[in-house]
């Protein structure tokens, strides 16, 4: 199979590993800044094709799909972020290839992947596929390949008239060693300060369930679950997280799982190593004292 990775980010370590399962010489098509293309050139792919972009990357969907289809790619790997998902639809239509997510393994033309949000797995025969998955981290192979620049046509119709950088510095929860996640049990945005204090003492990153981001209390890149990140820290502490499946599917690969919740019937308690039935407003300050 011929594998192409289409990305706007250099954090594609997992995608390179998957691509290598079917093609020892995967190609990366990088859209965006030259610095990203340079980083990808050091990541161990065989070729880097780079297109500078201006305006929304979604405008390049049709040009990207044509380029990759004409190159004869059978497997296209795309990081699971908003911009790349827009490209993935174009690639799937152009290649007439199924769109697959949640990869578990890829061998001999057979792909095992999660379905229904990850509650079940299936193995499918893939002659062609577009795979949308967590990109993984940055990789530096120590050597660099030449970056080949191409010019892609952008479709008209989308124009950025204003752009503000995202308010908080991004974290890559996919690589976090420890995570403290908050859910609706937290009653006010101000209360996140004490959560942050606990996280600092644990050396953990702060994450949340979808409703907390919906309230604007934490940025979208902190959301864990079906429409957020899937994480695998060595320690995952859930505070006031009810344990809806849409969140839990994102944490099942964690090492030790701790939950604090007032509701003893919280579904998350079925999937923990340590569950504290109690009020996080008492337990969190007590934990901070215990860790001091």
């Amino acid at each position: 199979m011929k594998a192409w990775i289409v990305t706007t980010s250099a954090a594609i370590g997992s995608l390179i590993d998957l691509a290598r399962e079917v093609d020892p010489e995967p190609v990366a098509l990088v859209l965006g800044a030259a610095s990203v293309a340079d980083a990808v050139a050091r990541s161990g792919v065989e070729r880097v094709v780079w297109a500078e972009t201006s305006g929304p990357v979604e405008s390049y969907r049709d040009a990207v799909a044509s380029l990759v289809a004409e190159a004869g790619a059978d497997l296209v790997l795309v990081p699971a972020s908003d911009a790349e998902r827009a490209l993935a639809g174009g690639l799937a239509v152009a290649l007439d290839a199924p769109l697959l997510t949640l990869p578990i393994g890829l061998k001999n033309g057979l792909m095992t992947h999660g379905v229904h949000g990850g509650i079940a797995e299936r193995t499918v025969a893939v002659e062609r596929a577009v795979l949308v998955a967590d990109g993984g981290g940055l990789v530096d192979s120590g050597t660099s390949v030449v970056v080949e620049q191409v010019v892609l046509a952008s479709a008209s119709g989308l124009e950025i008239v204003d752009s503000q950088p995202a308010p908080a510095a991004s974290v890559d929860l996919g690589t976090s060693r420890r995570i403290v996640a908050v859910g609706r049990g937290v009653r006010a945005a101000e209360d996140l300060a004490v959560i942050g204090d606990l996280a600092a003492r644990l050396g953990a990153d702060v994450a949340c369930s979808r409703p907390i981001s919906g309230l604007g209390w934490l940025p979208h890149d902190r959301v864990i679950g079906l429409t957020g990140r899937r994480v695998a820290p060595e320690l995952y502490v859930a505070l006031g997280v009810s344990g809806q499946l849409q969140h839990v599917v994102g944490v099942r690969s964690s090492g030790v799982v701790v939950a604090v919740n007032t509701d003893a019937a919280s579904p998350l308690f079925g999937e923990v190593d340590y569950g504290v039935v109690g009020d996080l407003y008492e337990i969190v300050p007590a934990l901070i004292r215990a860790l001091s």
Partner: peptide
């Protein structure tokens, strides 16, 4: 795509210690 197999995801054993 042609399905050739399916499985229930392996569950990580949890201690389930309640405090």
């Amino acid at each position: 795509p042609q399905m050739v197999g399916r499985a229930r995801p392996a569950e990580r054993p949890r201690r389930r210690v309640m405090i």
